[in-house]
Amino acid sequence: MAKKKKKKVSPDTIAVNKQARRLYEILETFEAGISLLGSEVKSLRGGQVSFKDGYVSFRDGSAFLIGVHIAPYEQTGPFDQHEPERPRRLLLHKREIDLLQAKSEQKGLTVVPMKLYFARGKVKVQIGLGRGKNVHSKKQDLKDRDIARDTARQLASYK
């Protein structure tokens, strides 16, 4: 009997921070675990998360996710509710924390959450080291996207 092939597990995306790529030029990305409460995980399975003004802060040799809103889970009792915007600890290697902290202290660089997803049953967050874009860069990105779309349309019409 033939061996069964293991299915390649693709991460289940919970939410994507669309503003991150629009407002920042992402230089590097990292995958980090995130320390959550049970009710937060249940809420994430329902997709109740908002990145709005989320960023990563460093203190005491640890990285924390600040400003990400995870809605309270409705089926949880009133005493087991979590605070929606509490700081959540990111699980990274010490060398990654030191690298990100050193680079984020440079002028114009910041660390922002880009995507939340499930990987092998665990909640992971993709964080990116980014440099803020100015208005000119945003307009140039829009122009490039329009040109690429028009080119794709013309190529498709010739086929």
Rank of each mutant, 00 (worst) to 15 (best):
H69M: 12
K103M: 10
I14L: 06
L91Q: 10
L27N: 06
E28Q: 03
G46Q: 14
Q106Y: 08
Q140H: 12
Y73I: 02
L92P: 03
L91M: 13
K138G: 05
L23H: 07
E28I: 00
K5P: 04
K124A: 10
P78L: 15
K8H: 00
R88P: 09
S50Q: 07
D98N: 11
S50L: 08
A71N: 10
Q140N: 14
K103Y: 10
K143F: 14
K52A: 14
R22A: 15
I127Y: 00
L23Q: 09
G77T: 13
K122P: 02
A148L: 15
Q101N: 13
L129I: 02
P113M: 08
S10K: 09
I14E: 05
E96D: 15
L99A: 09
H69K: 13
V135A: 11
D150W: 10
G77Y: 06
G61A: 10
A102M: 11
Q140K: 14
K42H: 06
H136T: 15
F51S: 07
D141C: 02
Q81K: 07
S10V: 11
V135Q: 08
Y24E: 00
L99D: 10
E85V: 05
F118A: 04
L92G: 01
K124Y: 08
A148W: 04
L142M: 13
V56T: 03
H136Q: 14
I66T: 07
N134H: 09
A71R: 10
Y117G: 01
F118P: 03
E85N: 07
G108E: 07
P87D: 11
D144F: 06
S10N: 10
L91T: 11
D53H: 05
Q19F: 05
V111L: 03
D12M: 06
R89Y: 08
E83V: 12
S10C: 07
H136V: 15
H82N: 06
Q126P: 00
E25C: 04
S50H: 08
G61H: 09
T29V: 15
Q106M: 13
K6P: 01
R131P: 01
F64R: 02
Y24A: 03
Q48P: 04
R86K: 15
F64W: 15
K124H: 09
A63W: 03
K133M: 05
K8A: 01
V125Q: 01
G38W: 08
F118G: 05
K124C: 11
F58R: 01
